[in-house]
Design a protein around this nucleic acid. Structure first.
Lengths: 346, 346
DNA sequence: CTGTTAGCGCTTTCAA
DNA sequence: TTGAAAGCGCTAACAG
């Protein structure tokens, strides 16, 4: 491994000064055509590439966008990540990905790392449990990042208020839940089971909220026994239905807070000899890719995940163009109609 | 936004030299207890974090591992990515993610960026079309990266030979296909349709190879009409089955080169009034998370994707411990048995 | 249009 | 155990 060439090597070979080399490299500076050609040849000859760290150190931005998610293997996060990555690439930024596994300590550590990297933006993705010190913690993060010249973006997670020093990009979570529940209700369903996440998890809580509002709007009574909490997984979806069935709690439809749970519910229903949508209607949330591959294809609330990611990056990088560092935008959601819902017969 | 504090600020506040601060920060150097405490207090007081670029510039490694995938939204890549991210975190490395969308030019650009970043390792993930200049291109990459002190790892993609300056971490792709086909064959199936990817795509080609070998081993004739090529998607899976059915090409089982295609095939079969596994058995590949959520739950070839990712990082970073920079390892695959396969009746 | 030079913030000898 | 000082490779004034 020979030592990698530096800008001085290029300068020497091209017979110019390092400043000149730097100029032709960055492109935005008048340099004589002949000189430029000479430098470019030298660059190619030496197979030279700039040292990003040296460049970042001497002033210019680091050209890095950081994405902080709970898990990498999750269609939900993955689609946001894809949006972030695309937009970052478009803006000539590199994309750092970190996971927290929902651990606040890990989150803290990750944010610190991002400050060290002087990332242009840190995008925090997905729902959280808003416990006691969450707000305060976020506030400290925002502070520290701002000092490092880094924009903080909350993506798919409720804004902490207009005064909070961060950008927030949300989607109409409760609205989607309202629409989904309404679809069931207008089909005549009244006993609608709601499969939700852990209490306190923002994503889930907002979905429950939409469910409640729709029920109220249609004058349908809310039976607490129909609202089920747990880990938002396929397995848990099965468990909820199993217990509902065992407890002889009547229901003609299910609204699941995500598609995994809906798929689990579907499977357990089938195992119990119940058909969907003939006996029970189901509607999920997130419009995961596999929703249309199920049988019956699953109605679900579509969330513009990649748009969420793209918007997060766009807003964060608008810094240069003088956009405010604290703002909130909300993207719409809508129900995708497939084959898992049918009017109530009982 | 106040200027962020530097090591000098900390030194000043703690009343020591920058060298001392640097020492307590890196930890691995004898420093008097009292001094250390003083420095740490100053760090906390100023909310100081090191500048990663400055640190990287002054010699030490950049602590970054780069992951280059085709797409972010793909369970296949996502699971490898998860493994890479985990292991990278464990090794105190940050994880850069880039996508190529299968475009060689973009790949070239990404590799250049990684050289600029002086990443510790660049992990190239997933199958490729090994066309004419692919080898040569890879060789150039490897060269350039080695000069930058960066390890190149080919992950889930065939090694370019033991002399090639890169690490390769593969899985037994053909072996898995052989096992899957064998399962069908030993159930008495002889007319087995193979749903594959574009010709030339390494992943797909190796799976076809395993299929052929198994067919040969069981003395089953290979009907070219049963081997179908295309984009490896759900849609295409449906199309293949539709065309097979329309062309009246007899088959009692399907081996799909990935689970998406298997799911599509399953759906089209059902639409045509055929049952799985009663009428047609299906087996997929990759053991994607949704495979067990289908009805019937799908038999599939399990690929240790996260282990693949972890191994890639582990090997790449073993540099320090003096591991060779060129080696090949292969991880095993196995068939996961669920409910989509049944002995042939016709 | 081009060259000189002073840092950017940190690590790391070499001395003390 | 601590400090002084020389870079790491690049950019950005400031001169010419």
């Amino acid at each position: 491994m020979t030592k990698r060439p530096t800008i001085r090597d290029v300068a020497a070979l091209a017979g110019v000064s390092v400043a000149t080399v730097s100029r032709v490299l960055s492109g935005d500076y008048p340099v004589a055509g002949a000189t430029r050609t000479r430098v470019q040849r030298a660059v190619r000859e030496l197979d030279y590439v700039v040292n990003a760290h040296a460049r970042a150190l001497s002033g210019t931005t680091s050209k890095v966008v950081a994405l902080v998610v709970r898990e990498v293997v999750s269609p939900f996060y993955a689609r946001i990540a894809a949006g972030v990555e695309e937009q970052a690439t478009e803006a000539h930024r590199l994309c750092l990905v970190c996971t927290t596994h929902g651990d606040p300590d890990r989150e803290l550590e990750v944010i610190k790392l991002m400050r060290e990297q002087q990332a242009d933006a840190v995008i925090l993705v997905g729902g959280v449990v808003e416990n006691a010190d969450y707000r305060e913690r976020m506030y400290r993060y925002a502070q520290g990042l701002e000092d490092a010249g880094t924009r903080l973006v909350l993506c798919g997670r409720p804004s902490l208020g207009p005064d909070f020093p961060a950008i927030s990009v949300e989607y109409d979570n409760a609205g989607g839940a309202f629409a989904a529940t309404s679809q069931l209700l207008s089909g005549g369903h009244r006993r609608i089971a709601m499969l939700a996440g852990e209490p306190g998890l923002t994503t889930s809580d907002e979905r429950i909220d939409g469910y409640r509002r729709a029920m109220a709007a249609f004058g349908a009574p809310i039976d607490p026994a129909l609202i089920r909490h747990g880990w938002m997984s396929h397995e848990e979806g099965r468990r909820h239905v199993r217990e509902l069935l065992a407890g002889r709690t009547a229901f003609t439809a299910i609204f699941a807070a995500n598609d995994q749970m809906a798929a689990g519910a579907l499977m357990e229903l089938r195992a119990a000899g119940l058909r969907c949508p003939e006996d029970v209607s189901i509607i999920g949330y997130d419009d995961s890719p596999f929703a249309q591959d199920l049988w019956p294809a699953l109605n679900s609330v579509h969330v513009p995940l990649d748009e969420l990611g793209r918007t997060a990056v766009r807003l964060a990088l608008a810094k240069s163009t003088g956009a405010p560092s604290r703002q909130q935008v909300m993207l719409g959601t809508h129900v995708v109609i497939r084959n898992s819902v049918r009017p109530a017969t009982r």
